[in-house]
Design a binder for these strands. Structure first.
Lengths: 238, 238
DNA sequence: GCAATAGTGTCTTTCAGACACTATTAT
DNA sequence: ATAATAGTGTCTGAAAGACACTATTGC
């Protein structure tokens, strides 16, 4: 190794290094994930197949892994996510036909972008039904997506993560619905409200949401709020 | 990219890919972590400095990242760990003077190896005092170690992870002591016992630990037991 | 007996679950 | 008034916290 060092390089083969981002949102009463279609060019692995947004780390452009993830997210959605966390890494000899590769996977939560204006043209939202997605994904992205869904669900049991899936202003029933969508089971209203309000996570604003029924108080996330960890999970199934 | 593909290579520079392992054990009533001393050879970064066991992924030897972590663990301790989980990855332009590098960090839990027989000669256990370690570590390993300690502590609040720090046979007070060492606070005996026994995690064996006092029932981990997740954390501080 | 630690029991507290009840809007 | 949803209150039950109490050993 010392000799390599003196020569200013390392001769052993290096794995490919990529970053992929699992981007979740809530649209149309469903949890959805953003996928991009792989290019059709010959020589590209998995042409035309849907995949997680991601790609090679650019050692010139990317200061660090998280910046790289943020860049790919911005490229595809036009926005920066209010929540970005590392999910894990997947690396082995066979996941990419181009050689030994390791990907650093992130997962991001964002409110539904109102106009699909800023979405990249090759990107599209796909609903998650029954904890799965219909499409067969490129590489091992199906596995990565499953891990992301599992992580999201398990954290939603005892954290305030769904707050990052909400638009700037929302009601408590809105928030509860999002919890229920992600967990795929209903929660008890009264316990839910007590818990969220006790968490000092959101604050009421001087506005109500009106509808064909009793108006609901609008809230916003307290600014600079880190996710809150509850000491108990929600009523665990069975 | 297609052209590169045809040429059978990718011309852009690749980051260095490494794996590091944070190995914890309990020795002498303290949580300890295994460190190795970096080689003194000229050209090696951080000569003589203590670091986490780890190193480059070997695309010829390592089937995947976890196997690589397992290999490095085995090299340094002579044993395979009963618990190995991914901790996260750290990658940026400056953490390694040799260039843009990304490390995949794992954390492992093991019982204290009775004879230090099998420890590598350059490896040594270091106690963690007050959630920190005295040594200044190589690279960003101090940061990785802090993350590992934090992850361990937070998971110990609501999981059975400490079971993997125990020898094959142990008593309930032994296990409680390990929880208390990791969390650095005392737990209430009766609630602790109820909780662990209800978790169906351990089983009594036909043997007692004798001492200058009432003998204690010995238990062992039920085999094939995944870590158990409790629905509540332990009495959270304050 | 005494010291020391193992292990149990009892009462209190906390908080979620269930669910009924009240409140406020549009029509 | 009615439908519909927002929001509150009340009772119960599960499990932890506090802490006292009993149990079993060596000396």
């Amino acid at each position: 190794m010392q000799d390599n060092e003196k020569a200013g390089k390392f001769d052993f083969p290096r794995p490919l290094t990529t970053v992929d981002v699992v981007i979740f949102t809530i649209r149309g009463e469903a949890l959805q994930v953003l996928l991009v279609q792989r290019p059709a060019a010959e020589g590209e692995p998995f042409p035309q197949t849907w995949a997680l947004p991601g790609g090679f780390v650019d050692v010139a452009k990317d200061r660090d892994l998280e910046a790289c993830a943020g860049r790919k997210l911005k490229d595809k959605t036009g926005v920066t996510s209010p929540y970005l966390e590392q999910l894990g890494s997947w690396g082995n000899a066979v996941r990419d036909p181009r050689g030994w590769s390791a990907t650093h996977a992130y997962f991001a939560l964002m409110a539904d972008v109102p106009g699909a204006a800023s979405l990249a043209t090759d990107a599209q939202w796909f609903p998650i039904v029954g904890g799965k997605i219909r499409q067969k994904l490129a590489f091992d992205h199906g596995e990565i997506l499953s891990a992301a869904i599992q992580r999201l669900r398990s954290k939603v049991e005892y954290t305030s993560l769904p707050a990052y899936l909400m638009p700037a202003e929302f009601t408590l029933p809105d928030l509860q619905r999002v919890y229920e969508i992600v967990l795929d089971r209903s929660l008890e209203k009264s316990a839910f409200r007590t818990r969220i309000l006790a968490a000092d996570l959101i604050e009421p604003i001087a506005k109500m949401r009106r509808g064909p029924n009793r108006p609901a108080q609008l809230y916003r996330l307290k600014k600079g709020k880190e996710p809150v960890y509850f000491v108990r999970t929600f009523n665990p199934p069975e």
